[in-house]
Every structure is written in structure tokens, then in C-alpha cells.
Simulated scan of single mutants.
Amino acid sequence: MKKTIIAASLFALGSAPALAADYSDGDRSKNDYKWMQANLMYAVDELPGESSHDYLELEFGGRAGVLDYYGYVDVFNLTNSDSSDKAGEAKMFAKLAPRISLDGLFSTDLSVGPIQEWYVASVYNVNGDSSVNNFSIGLGSDVMVPWLGKIGLNLYSYYDVNAKEWNGYQISTNWFKPVYFFGNGSFIAYQGYLDYQFGYDDSFDALHSSSGGAMFNGIYWHSDNFALGYGLKAYNDVYALKDGGLAGKTSGFSHYIAATYKF
């Protein structure tokens, strides 16, 4: 069962065979799978704010018919320490990123060239006090690229729920590439993601810039039940917040240590 979950995770994140989605037989459930894991994390100099803190992340994903889904919930400052950089801040953060397969919806193969499948893609981000509250929707895809294999590639239009306005766009991609296998079946993987915001209207806004983003690069050891990893995250005006402005430091690097249990 654990190997099945790992295989499903690899399929979702980019190391499956180069097969286009084909639902012309009417079977929309033939690619169904699900996975869930708990990540105990420690961040060093996370931006904005150069915050160092612990947190627990419950991460999940899978496929159910035409619905491809991914998400996580973070719980910060597990010991409720007054000395934590997260003391007095929102305790939780959640990200939900469902995609609806257009290939599955229309029971056909819409693949073209390296693009294996098309989606209506969305992302919802919210934290415990709703100071972060945004929604993005757009066009998603699974794309075969050299060496990495299959990656997710999505283009969104960004909506600020608190301000009740559309403003700017975001392009996101993610990958998972096993690079070395051990004799016992465990392996080392290069995994990560890139989120880049652009086209933000900052004409009358001292807080934001017109663009910005972050890239996470992780090296993780995986077994059936466990994973251990290190991640380096690079920022440039992250969340389109001006570096050195009202948001403080928003460009630079942070480090992450992770210990994972796979359900």
C-alpha cells in the first residue's frame, strides 16, 4: 500500500511515463489515487519578515474522476512558545489547489505535443485571521519536459478576496524527480515548485511591486513510510511585495528542514 502511495505521488508530480490522458473509453476513474503525509518542518529566515519557526504541515493530494487535487494545512508554533517568531500571529495557514480535467470532462484526449492534459486550475490561500485571503483561477496543464519528466504548469488570474478586486496574474509549476535509487528501494529526489506573480497594478500602492515570486528547491530522501529533506527557497519581491519597503525584507534566501511520515 505504501509503495502504491509513493508511486501515485510520483505520477502526480512528474516521474510517470509519458502517457497522455485518454478518457475516450468513458472510464474517468481509471487514474484515481490518493496520498497524505505529515511534515514536521523548521524554517530558517523565511520571508517576508526573516522568520525562523517550527510548524506541522498536513499535506494531501490525489485524483478522483475529473478532479485532480492538492492541498495542505500548516499549524505554527506547536509548543506555543512566547519566544517563537510566530507568537501572537495566525496559528494556521491553508492552501487548496483543485484542478478539473478538461480531457476527463469531455471524455477525449486533448494532448498536443509535450502537453499531456488540460485543466481548469484554481488556488485558494487563507490564514487563521484572514489577513491572507486570496483566490486564483485559470488554465492548467501537465507538461513533459526533458529530464524532469511530467510537471504541473498553471496560469492564473489573481483575486484578492479581502480587497474584492482582480489584480495581476500568477504562473506556477511543480516537479518531482527521483535522481538516485538505493538497493533497498529508497531514493533521493529533487523536488520543488516555482510561483511567480506579474502584472500587479501597484500604481497607488507603496506596499507592492508589479511582480515577484519564490522558488523552492528540495533534496529529499524517500522510503515507503518516511522522508527527510532540506530545501532552499529563493525569493524576489515575494508575493509582489517591495523588498525593503513596508513589508520589510522580501528578497533573499531561506532554509527548510523536513521530517515526513507517509500515511
Rank of each mutant, 00 (worst) to 15 (best):
E57F: 06
L58M: 13
L58T: 08
L58S: 07
L58E: 02
L58F: 12
L58A: 10
G61M: 12
R63E: 08
R63W: 09
R63S: 11
R63T: 14
A64K: 14
A64M: 14
A64E: 14
G65W: 04
G65E: 04
V66Y: 09
V66N: 07
L67D: 01
L67P: 02
D68G: 05
Y69K: 07
Y69G: 11
Y69H: 08
Y69I: 10
Y69V: 10
Y70V: 05
Y70K: 04
Y70S: 08
G71C: 07
G71Q: 08
Y72Q: 12
V73A: 10
V73T: 14
V73P: 05
D74W: 03
D74E: 11
V75D: 06
F76T: 07
F76D: 03
N77S: 08
N77V: 05
N77T: 06
L78Q: 12
L78E: 11
T79H: 03
N80R: 14
S81I: 07
S81A: 14
D82C: 02
S83I: 03
S83P: 03
S83R: 05
S84H: 00
S84F: 01
S84M: 01
D85W: 00
D85H: 02
K86I: 04
A87F: 02
A87P: 01
G88C: 09
G88K: 06
A90R: 04
A90M: 03
K91S: 15
K91V: 13
K91H: 14
K95P: 01
L96M: 12
A97V: 05
P98H: 13
P98Y: 11
R99H: 11
R99A: 15
R99N: 14
R99S: 14
I100L: 15
I100S: 06
I100Q: 01
S101E: 00
S101Q: 00
S101T: 02
L102T: 02
L102N: 00
D103Y: 07
D103W: 11
D103R: 04
G104K: 02
G104W: 04
L105M: 09
T108H: 00
T108V: 05
D109A: 11
S111R: 04
V112S: 12
G113E: 07
G113F: 11
G113D: 08
G113T: 13
G113I: 11
P114R: 08
I115L: 08
I115W: 09
I115R: 03
Q116M: 13
Q116T: 07
Q116N: 09
E117H: 09
E117A: 10
W118A: 02
W118C: 03
W118G: 00
Y119E: 00
Y119P: 01
Y119N: 04
Y119M: 06
Y119C: 05
Y119Q: 02
V120K: 01
A121Q: 00
S122V: 05
V123S: 12
V123P: 02
V123A: 13
V123Y: 06
V123R: 15
Y124A: 14
N125K: 14
N125D: 15
V126L: 08
N127M: 09
N127E: 10
N127Y: 04
G128L: 01
G128P: 10
